[in-house]
Amino acid sequence: MLAESLALTAALFVIGVIGVLIHRNAIIIFMCVELMLTAVNLTFVAFSRFYGTAGQVFVVFVMTVSAAEAAVGLAIIIAIFRHRQTIDLKDINLLKG
C-alpha cells in the first residue's frame, strides 16, 4: 500500500499548498499548513512499515512542533486582529519595504 499512501500524501500536500495560495484568511491558511504537515506524517507512517518505527517517532515530533506552531501562530493572529481588526492578508502589510 506504499504507492497509494504516497500518492495520497502528494495529493493532500498539494491541496494544502493550493489552499495557502488561494486563501486570504489567515486562519484558513493556517489550517492548510496543518494539512500539509499531516500529509507529511502519512509519508512517515507509510515508510515506517519498511524502515522501522523511527518514522512513527518522527510523527510524534512533527505533531509536537505543529501544536507549538499552532499555539504561537494563533496567538499572533489574535494579536494582529487586536491591532487591525482584520486577519485578511491583503490588509496586513507591515513588512512593506
Partner: peptide, 30 residues
C-alpha cells in the same frame, strides 16, 4: 489510515492531538 498501516499509537495521537486539540484551538480562535 495510520491504524491500517500498523501505526496504532500514531493513529490515536492523530485523533487526540490534531482532531482534538489543535482543531479545537482553531475553532476557539475563530
Amino acid at each position: 489510515l495510520y491504524v491500517m498501516l500498523d501505526a496504532q499509537f500514531v493513529g490515536v495521537m492523530q485523533v487526540l492531538v490534531y482532531a482534538g486539540a489543535i482543531m479545537v484551538v482553531f475553532l476557539f480562535v475563530v
